[in-house]
Structures are given as C-alpha cells and as structure tokens.
Simulated assay, not measured.
Amino acid sequence: MARPIVRGTAAWKYFGDFRDGLLAGQVLVLQVAHPVVAAGVRDHSDYTSDPWTRLMRTGASLSIYVYGGASGARFEAARLRALHRSFTGVASGRRYSALDPLAYAWVHATLVKVPVDAQRFFGRQLSSSELEEYYAQMCDVGRMLGVRERDLPPDWAAFERYYDSMVAGFSMNPAIEQLFETIRTVPKPVRWLPDSWWRWHGRIQLFLLRATLPPEFRERLGLLWTSRDERRFRRFASAVRLVATPIPAGLRTAHMRWIGKLNVWLRAHPKVYERLIGGQGPGSASPRA
C-alpha cells in the first residue's frame, strides 16, 4: 500500500494540475483506440451530442478519487462499477462488456499516464522518487476501481513497457474518426463566446492532440507532423512551463480539489444537485455519468 493521497504527496500535486487538461484530446484518442472501449463509446456514450455535460461529469468523477477523501473515492468507485455493468453489446460479432478487465485496466492506465506526460511536456519531469510514490498511489486508486492486481504492473518501468505495448497494437478506428470530427464541430458551451474565438478551439485541440500522441501511433493514424509544427509546439510548451511552473502546487490543483470536495457533498445531497444543475447528482446511477 502507498502513502495516503494527502497534501504534498505526488498524486495530490500532479493528478489535478491544470496542465493535465492540455492532454484531454490525447487521452480520449488513446482510450477509444482500444476496441472494447470504442464499442462502448459507440453504443453508450452521448459525448458527441452533449460533450460539455459529459466532460463536466467525467471531471467531477475523477476529482473524487484523489481529492474527495477515502470514503468518497470508495463510494465513487462502487458507483462506477455498478453503472458500467449495464454497458454491454456486440462488436465484430463478439459480446463485450465495459467491465472487460483488460479494457478497464487500459482506461485506468491512460489516466495514470496523463499527469506524467503533462509534466514532461509542460513542466518538469517527475523525479524517480516522485514517480515511485505517484504510481503506487494510483495503483491504490486502480484497486479501489476494481482493476485486477495482475493488470497493475508492479512498478513504473513495467507500467511504461505495458503502456507502449498496448499503443503499438492500436490503429485508426471509427471511434477515433468520430472523435476528430466532434473536436472540429463541437458547438460552443455558451452562446456569448465569439464564433471567431471558438473556431480556434478546435484547431488548438487538434494541434495539441497531434503534438502529444506517441509519434509512432500518430503516424499510424495518418496525422501530419512537420518540423515547423514541432517548433511551434516547443515554443508553446516553453511558454506554459514558464508561466505555470512557479505556481505552487496548491494553486495548480485548486480547481480539482474544490470540485472533488463539492462532489462528495453533492453525492450526499442529490436533490440539491438536481435543483441546481437539472440532472441527477454524482452519486446517482445515471447512464450519462
């Protein structure tokens, strides 16, 4: 067992860093590259029609694991497993389940990798001791979620080998194509955003996606990446690093810590959530969660 996730520990400092959001497109592509995840998204997700609500619910759920306390994390893990039991279907002539152990472990792995990649691109790389602590803490989160022990590599080096071997087996599929189209065409979350500003959102998201995907996988997807793109990305990453790195970890993660604590409270008061948001609370078994 790892140290509890408390202030100052590695998972506390890095899992909710606002720079992690710059890899949102990357992690979604890597998740739906898995055929079982792709089938589940096709049959059960509403992200193409209502991406903003879906994004907010996903962020709320993730925040609970690290910043909502042990009891909140256990409750959320049980809720998600109960919810995903109903996500079944047929893909390529075979039945699938969202709780397929290998697919379930892969989704967890992508979320474990994001903060480490975000620091590598936009901050400072985690030290060996930080990586050891961070990975052990995220393995405990995985166990809470129901990831099998045998699907949790024993250390970070083994995890990277597992991660790279999974990515090596992926290629383009309809779910990835749909995701690209959604990023290009997703409507504005609020009406008052100028159209000219919003058009840049899709371009920036696709640029960051191309920049941060594993290079070999990017090539297999047919995504162009030039030396000019690389220079632009390095300038962007340097600017983010310059601005964000001096900010204390407590401020870089404040939004996720606040969301985590708020959602633990809303879980205990679902009627308040329903009145404020117009939907079921984070403790419900809504299929849209």
Rank of each mutant, 00 (worst) to 15 (best):
G89E: 03
Y135W: 09
W197G: 07
R120H: 14
A158D: 08
K113Y: 15
S61D: 09
S171M: 07
P153R: 06
H108E: 04
L55A: 14
N173R: 12
L62N: 03
Y65C: 02
R199E: 14
T110V: 14
S97E: 13
Y135M: 06
Q125Y: 04
A77Q: 02
R161N: 07
A91I: 02
L80Y: 02
S71N: 11
W197E: 09
S196W: 13
T110L: 04
K188Y: 09
E133A: 08
A78Y: 05
I183W: 06
S86N: 12
D195I: 06
H108P: 05
I183T: 14
Q137T: 07
A91W: 13
I183G: 04
F121I: 04
G146A: 01
W192N: 08
V147W: 01
V190C: 01
V167Q: 13
D151K: 06
V141E: 04
E149T: 12
P194I: 09
G142P: 04
A136E: 12
E149R: 14
H84V: 06
E160Y: 01
G59T: 11
S127V: 11
G93P: 10
R161I: 00
R124Q: 15
V167E: 12
T182N: 04
V90Y: 09
A103N: 03
V107W: 01
Y135Q: 07
R143T: 12
L99I: 02
E76F: 06
V114D: 08
G69L: 09
G59K: 08
A77C: 03
V116W: 08
R81S: 00
A175C: 14
R143H: 03
Y162N: 10
N173G: 15
S86C: 05
L193I: 15
R161P: 01
A105V: 05
K188G: 11
F75P: 00
R57T: 11
G123W: 14
T185I: 07
V141A: 08
G72F: 00
S86K: 14
Q137N: 10
L102F: 12
M56K: 12
E177G: 11
M144R: 10
R199C: 05
A73E: 03
L126D: 03
F180G: 08
R94V: 05
L179M: 15
R85T: 11
R184C: 09
Y65K: 01
T185Y: 06
R184I: 09
A136R: 08
L131M: 11
Y163Q: 00
Q125V: 13
R81H: 01
S129Q: 14
V66D: 02
F87A: 07
E149H: 12
F180W: 14
V116A: 14
V107F: 00
G89V: 07
Y163T: 00
W197N: 07
H84C: 06
R79D: 05
G142L: 03
I64G: 01
Q119W: 13
F87V: 15
L193E: 05
G146F: 00
M144E: 10
E149W: 06
A77H: 02
